[in-house]
Simulated assay, not measured.
Amino acid sequence: MSVDVRLDQGRLSRFLRLRGGIVERRLARRTSRVADIARDLAPGSMGDYVDWHIEEGSRGLEGVITCDHPATRFVLDGTRPHIIRPRRKKALRFEVDGQVVYSAIVRHPGTRANNFLGQALRLGR
């Protein structure tokens, strides 16, 4: 006596990828966890701009984490030393040790890269 088991690969794939199916729920849980870690690791208010969603990609369902803060690219890649000049006024205004300072230019030393999204992905596995 023999038993044959045949899998309809297309049907199985569709079943696993169904919206609300096991795969999507697990992917959503993991993606949400990584996004929460990214929010915690993000500097300043940048964590408020971290969001996630599930989408259908070319290879199936994908968990996507985004950060749409305007300075995200500068934080992730870091910056080289550069000069900051005022755009609309004659001077820049900022605080140093609690005192207000005005300056025509600022020589910014640059910032070290902080890939908090990549770090969150590694920690969330």
Rank of each mutant, 00 (worst) to 15 (best):
V3I: 08
F15S: 02
A71H: 10
A91Q: 14
G60Q: 09
V3H: 13
G124P: 00
P70F: 15
E95A: 14
G44R: 04
R19V: 08
I105Y: 12
G118F: 10
I84V: 12
L92S: 15
K90F: 03
R33C: 06
L61D: 06
V50I: 05
R59P: 01
A120S: 04
V101T: 07
T79K: 11
S103D: 09
G98R: 15
D4H: 11
D4S: 13
V3W: 14
H53K: 11
R19W: 02
M46G: 05
L16E: 07
S2Y: 15
I54W: 12
P81G: 09
L123W: 06
R17M: 08
T31M: 01
T31G: 10
G98Y: 15
I37A: 09
K90E: 03
R59W: 10
R85W: 08
R29N: 12
P81V: 10
L76R: 13
T79N: 04
R87F: 04
I105G: 09
R25L: 05
V100R: 14
K89I: 04
E62D: 10
V100G: 11
E56R: 03
C67A: 15
A104D: 05
G118P: 02
Q9D: 14
F116I: 00
L27N: 14
Y102D: 02
I83K: 09
P86T: 15
I105T: 15
R29D: 11
T66M: 06
R73T: 09
